[in-house]
C-alpha cells in the first residue's frame, strides 16, 4: 500500500506506472520504494473518505494474497480516487475487473467459512476451531464470531498460515503460533458430536440422494475439520 501511495503522490494519473515485486531486468531499472506505513495509512484514510466500499474491496483483495496483480491494484486505487465507490461497477475495465473478482472470491470464502467453521469444547471449557482456507480470512471470521458467540472464550486457528484469533469474552486478539497440538476435548463434546452426526445423516431424504450436488456446494477440501464428515 505504501508503494501505491508513493506512486500516486508522484503521478496522480499513474496511467503509465507499473508496480511489481522488485526484479531488475537488463533493460529497465525499477524504482525502489521503501515501505512507509505512514504514507500507507494516509492513503487508506483518503480512500476511506472518498470511497468507503473500495476499502472493503481492497481489504478482501489482500486476503487473497494473490501475486502478479500489483499493477492492477495500483490502477484500481487511482481510479477509485477519481470516481469513488462507483468504480466497482466499471467491470468492463480489465484492472477493476481483476481486483473486484479476486476480492469477491475471498469474500465468498469468508462467508462460506462462517457456516463451515466448527468449534469444539476443550477440557477447560474454552472452544477451539481449526481451518485451512485458501484465503487469509481469519480477520472477518473472528469479527463475526465475536458478535455471535460472544459469551464463549474461543480460539480460531488457521492451521496452514499458523495464525490464530482469540476472543476472551471482551476483546479480540490476533497472533501467530509456532507449534500446536489439539488439547483434550471435554467429556460432553463427544456426545454432542455424535448427536450432530445423527442429525446430519437422518435429515437427508434417501429418495433424493445426490452426492454430486453435495460436493459442488461443499467442496471436499473443507471436509477435514467438519464434525459431520469425519472418517470419510
Amino acid at each position: 500500500m505504501s508503494a501505491i501511495a508513493a506512486i500516486i503522490a508522484a503521478e496522480p494519473e499513474s496511467e503509465g506506472s507499473v508496480l511489481s515485486i522488485r526484479q531488475d531486468t537488463l533493460f529497465e531499472e525499477g524504482l525502489f520504494i521503501r515501505t512507509d506505513p505512514i504514507a500507507a495509512e494516509a492513503l487508506f484514510a483518503r480512500i476511506k473518505q472518498r470511497a468507503p466500499d473500495v476499502v472493503y474491496t481492497i481489504w478482501y483483495f489482500m486476503m487473497a494474497e494473490t501475486e502478479g496483480l500489483e499493477t492492477s491494484l495500483l490502477r484500481y486505487v487511482a481510479l477509485a480516487l477519481v470516481h469513488g465507490d462507483r468504480i466497482n461497477g466499471h467491470l468492463t475495465h480489465d484492472d477493476v475487473k481483476a481486483v473486484v473478482s479476486v476480492a469477491r472470491k475471498a469474500g465468498r470464502e469468508a462467508h462460506r467459512m462462517k457456516g463451515l467453521l466448527r468449534f469444539e469444547q476443550l477440557r477447560d471449557g474454552t472452544w477451539l476451531a481449526r481451518m485451512e482456507p485458501d484465503n487469509n480470512v481469519i480477520q472477518p471470521l473472528a469479527k463475526h464470531f465475536s458478535r455471535r458467540l460472544r459469551d464463549q472464550k474461543w480460539f480460531i486457528l488457521d492451521v496452514g498460515r499458523r495464525s490464530a484469533a482469540h476472543w476472551d469474552g471482551h476483546e479480540l486478539r490476533f497472533g501467530t503460533l509456532e507449534q500446536f497440538e489439539r488439547p483434550d476435548l471435554s467429556d460432553e463434546e463427544q456426545q454432542v458430536q455424535a448427536m450432530w452426526r445423527t442429525f446430519f445423516s437422518t435429515i437427508a431424504i434417501p429418495e433424493r440422494r445426490n452426492p454430486r450436488l453435495q460436493k459442488s456446494n461443499m467442496p471436499a477440501k473443507y471436509w477435514k475439520y467438519l464434525t459431520e464428515k469425519q472418517g470419510e
Binding site: H111, R148, P206, N210, L213, M218, E228
Partner: peptide, 30 residues
C-alpha cells in the same frame, strides 16, 4: 443484535452450515 442477548445473532443474507447427502443445505436444526 442487542444487549439483552447472551449468545447468537442472525445474518441478513443467511448462512448455510452444511449440505446433507441429498445436496440440500442445512442451516437450521430442523
Amino acid at each position: 443484535e442487542g444487549t439483552a442477548i447472551r449468545v447468537g445473532n442472525t445474518s441478513q443474507g443467511g448462512i448455510c452450515h452444511s449440505w446433507s447427502d441429498d445436496g440440500r443445505c442445512i442451516s437450521l436444526l430442523k
